[in-house]
Design a protein around this nucleic acid. Structure first.
Length: 351
DNA sequence: AAGGCGTGGAC
DNA sequence: TGTCCAAGCCT
């Protein structure tokens, strides 16, 4: 056993996290769901979603038998919705091709949609006590500092070196404490800013500490400017109901319900659009305050444009359109800006 | 291989 | 405030 692993394991058992909702179980399903939710998402943001999800879908079979809409509903607001679609699809794969049992073979685990090498290693170590290394943002930061490795840690060259390094450090036992220790150290001690080096079990061998490189490692991702886009969301209203449309299965907010969007760079005759696209007669109301929503790769300026529907239109003319009360819409699989617009609408109505 | 894919915490 | 980036994966 490497000294690195030894010290990490001992530290984790005393100072690590032991009471997160997805710990203290070897149920691969419970661990799997948590690992997917935690991809690129902080623990604090996941906790509420996790318990609700596990209550609604307690087993792989329950998840496989649910509709995609039900699954996305539970993911609404969490982001990266392909995770939910892949999770649902993988549950069906497990039912169809693995007899309903989560596979234990490391390579087979990685064939499931949404599970890459690091997530597979987390599941394999936590659920099956296999000797496989994770390599998430925490581990990259810990290794880049401890071994004074420069270069953006997600560049192919550096990442490959980090995988090899991480493998070389593995213990032959105690994989639960070791894997959790890697994450705990990165999340609570070896943090991006203001790391608590005096409390670190690995400080005595940390090269960044010795060479005073802690503040500049890991090397930050190269900066890139993101484009800005504009869109108008048409809010067709009749009484306390609004119309939502189902977005395409892939792309941003794939499979979620949203307001119909209109590129308003040219046409601004919203009444004509509503008549031509949705077959309803409307009058144009005052637009709501614009919303700016920042994604990883672009910034979206949304102009919410309410339209009052004059005639009875509560039968959706298109298969991908539905009319819902604002209350029901808030419970549907909607992205965050749509939720915020609905909340604004309901407060306006109430006031 | 590089970019698509969400949202919010931390500072 | 804006900036960085988080238990990454997919194409």
């Amino acid at each position: 056993m490497t000294d690195f692993a030894n010290r990490l394991i001992s530290w984790q058992k005393i100072h690590g996290r032991h009471d997160l909702p997805w710990q203290n179980t070897t149920d691969p399903y419970a661990i799997w769901v948590s690992e997917i939710m935690l991809q690129q998402t902080q623990v604090a943001a996941v906790i509420g979603y996790y318990s609700k999800f596990m209550t609604s879908f307690p087993t792989i079979a329950d998840l496989a038998n649910a509709t995609q809409d039900e699954v996305l509903q539970h993911w609404s607001g969490l982001g990266y919705y392909s995770r939910a679609r892949n999770l649902h699809h993988a549950a069906q794969t497990i039912m169809d091709e693995h007899g309903g049992q989560f596979p234990q073979d490391f390579d087979t685990i990685q064939t499931l949609s949404g599970i890459g090498r690091s997530t597979a290693a987390a599941i394999a170590s936590f659920a099956f006590h296999q000797v496989q290394t994770i390599l998430d943002g925490n581990v990259k930061r810990v290794l880049a500092r401890h071994f004074a490795i420069s270069g953006w840690t997600s560049s192919p060259k550096v990442e490959k070196a980090l995988w090899q390094l991480a493998e070389s450090l593995l213990p032959q036992s105690d994989m639960v404490a070791y894997t959790q220790g890697l994450m705990d150290l990165g999340a609570t001690i070896c943090t991006r800013s203001k790391p608590k080096c005096t409390a670190c079990p690995l400080v005595s061998s940390c090269l960044a500490q010795q060479q005073q490189l802690t503040a500049i490692l890991p090397t930050p991702k190269p900066k890139k400017s993101i484009p800005e886009k504009n869109t108008t969301m048409l809010i067709l209203r009749q009484g306390d109901e609004v119309m939502l449309v189902k977005r395409p299965a892939s792309g941003i907010w794939g499979g979620l319900w949203s307001f119909p969007e209109w590129d308003d760079s040219v046409h601004q005759d919203y009444t004509a659009i509503a008549r031509n696209q949705f077959g309803v007669s409307t009058t144009v109301d005052a637009p709501l305050a614009s919303i700016s929503h920042v994604f990883t790769h672009f910034k979206l300026h949304i102009k919410p444009q309410p339209l009052s529907v004059n005639q009875h239109a509560l039968q959706a003319r298109e298969a991908n359109a539905i009319w819902l009360t604002i209350e029901d819409a808030l419970g549907a699989a909607i992205p965050t800006p749509v939720r915020n617009i609905l909340l604004e609408l309901s407060s306006t109505v109430a006031a």
